[in-house]
Design a protein around this nucleic acid. Sequence first.
DNA 1: CGTGCCCCCTGTCAGC
DNA 2: TGCTGACAGGGGGCAC
Length: 270
Amino acid sequence: MGRSIERVEVLHADLLAQPEKQFRSAVRRTSLGAVGRRGKNLLLELLPQAAGAHPRQLVINLGMSGRLLHRSATSDAPPPTHPGVRFRLDDGSVLVYHDIRRFGRLQVLESDPFQRWSRTLGPEPLGGGFTADRLRRDLAGSSAPIRSWLLDQRKIAGVGNIYANEALFMAGIDPRMPAGEVSSDRVASLHRALRSVLREAIEAQGTTLRDYRTAQGWEGSYAARLRVYGREGEPCPRCRTLIVRLVFGGRSAFLCPECQSYGSHSPTRG
DNA sequence: CGTGCCCCCTGTCAGC
DNA sequence: TGCTGACAGGGGGCAC
């Protein structure tokens, strides 16, 4: 924080969600302010050096394989293999957006566009505005499978495939069930499950299945605690029935066919 | 407008 | 050993 950006190198313009010229001019002569997050998006505040210019937000979505790396001027670590965008800072260090698959996106938004963009995203599941009643109201009327609904960032911000599947297992809900048909009791369970799985996973520094690393380069330890995700053919931790994998909406879903149902009764959770 | 499908891209691994 | 196909944490665009 506080470092100014001396130079930007765009190695893969397809990573930008806006024209390169616009991106470069928005980044030019700024320094790094507060760091934040909205849903799955990393936020870096950019403070213009010019008097009267307003702060803006560098919004980074890491996609499937993105990483934001910081290398000091004296770092002897090997250079990143798939750099996409480099921000050279005034202390000689470099902030590198690295992305093998290049599904990630970067953009700089001024205050108003940023607010508009933020409003396209649903509530933060760990925030105060996300209540069981809010979830109940939002689910009402949707015919989409509940797993697909949970992945829609306009409905809830920040839930991905791993944690959607885990939360549905914890709440005893079949991932294919139409979102609007989940019973009131199950919605309350789902609300609790979403919050607890996200809190636990964050505390464990995330889920490293293969590539994911924290900003400091460490693996997250939540993979060992996953209940169903990636566990096709293994016994359900609750009833020992074998976990099943389905594909819908183009993504894998994992479930216990015994513990997760369409029904309204709520099995006792251990 | 909501939903579902395809596609973007690279790397890894299982099976043959 | 080498080839092929399946699969991977996400999300935008488009047809219906």
